[in-house]
Design a protein around this nucleic acid. Structure first.
Lengths: 217, 217
DNA sequence: GTCTATAGCCGGATAGAC
DNA sequence: GTCTATCCGGCTATAGAC
């Protein structure tokens, strides 16, 4: 049970190599060496390196999706959401999944076949976020004005994008998360303090509806 | 003047190939063919493909930085900021610079030498954003509570990350920008309607300062 | 399913002519 | 600065033994 067959080891090795050498440095030979199998086995099981990458994309996606859905299901405030996101990010940095996804996103920009798997997992990531937005805005003046689904996709996309830049272009702990926590607290205050119910704000919110919420797709 | 020397054409071709074939599909041969020069010339001018990529990273970065700095200098509201960002994004999609940057970020995650150029342009992108945040919060209850520099880096990083996912994992016009515009309007209202000055909010803002604003680096 | 061996192409990089 | 020619190593993929 703990002894994986060659097929599984190859897939596991692909994730490792993707994280370590990137999409630029990946090859059947390197993967085979990492998995400690012969090079021919890679092609026997997956046909081509491209097809293997497609399988890797599905794997990485499935891992992300199941974890995220469970963990985001129970948060009650924006601050909780950010705290949970921070923890999830740390885990994905440590296990290398995020580094692999970064390479797969670059590869998917070129090879259209890789996209559906990544898109599917992104949808599953955004879904619980939309649920939380719905709960948070329920009963406030924002209900019916903000559209939870596209907003959640924007929020999830921003966060995923930020994760992918971490360690390359910025340090997420120094910059983004620090400030996101502040914004989240601010958002929680605005949502809970009833300020949105004031006459001034209510009147101005009509303008938001006017130019933003009706989308002619 | 309109006739570029081989050296420049090679660099230009590198950007084109990066956007079209990605970091996985790039090679001295392909670049040479695109630039319509001999393969040897690539190595004569740049030494190695890796070094050429480093130069490409500096080029792409410089292009982004100068444009962004000028264009973000004059926005007056969050809504303006989002509108300008949308326009900048469209331009960078069309000219292929964004596609090249996407590949360079993936490459920089593996090769540390590529990072400084990308980081430098990111810093130049975040700087005007920090200035706008300073202006927008000046005179409100948020002044002194939000830390403009890390917040700007978080905002800029989220947006850049989102840009890099556009067309691969999501469609920025359908999801993110639509909702970002709504959030921006909402933010503008909160900032301008004076709701932040109410006693309830002022009291609660102390808590934000307590756990977020003092950073022990 | 897994191996060794091999075909044949493509890649980085250099030598030397112009 | 730019070219042609070339070396050699790595890469994908397949054939055939076990």
């Amino acid at each position: 049970m703990a002894d994986h067959a060659g097929r599984d080891r190859v897939l596991e090795a692909t994730m490792t190599v993707l994280a370590r050498d990137g999409i630029h440095g990946i090859s059947g030979r390197v993967i085979a060496a990492e998995a400690d199998v012969s090079q021919a086995l890679v092609f026997y099981h997956y046909g081509s390196v491209t097809d293997l990458l497609a399988t890797a994309a599905r794997t990485a996606s499935a891992r992300r999706a199941s974890t995220y859905q469970q963990r985001l299901a129970s948060v009650g405030t924006l601050s909780d959401l950010v705290a949970e996101a921070r923890q999830l990010h740390r885990e994905e940095v440590v296990n290398g999944n995020l580094a692999a996804v970064r390479q797969l996103v670059a590869a998917a920009a070129i090879d259209h076949h890789l996209r559906p798997s990544l898109q599917a997992s992104f949808d599953q990531l955004a879904a619980p976020v939309a649920d939380r937005i719905r709960e948070l805005t329920a009963g406030t003046a924002l209900e019916g004005i903000l559209d939870p689904t596209p907003l959640a996709r924007g929020v999830a996309g921003s966060f995923l994008g930020l994760q992918l830049l971490d360690g390359v272009v910025l340090d997420i702990e120094d910059d983004a998360l620090l400030s996101l926590e502040q914004l989240a607290r601010l958002g929680d205050i605005v949502l809970s303090a009833g300020v949105l119910e004031s006459a001034v704000v209510r009147r101005r919110l009509q303008q938001v509806t006017g130019t933003g919420a009706d989308r002619p797709r």
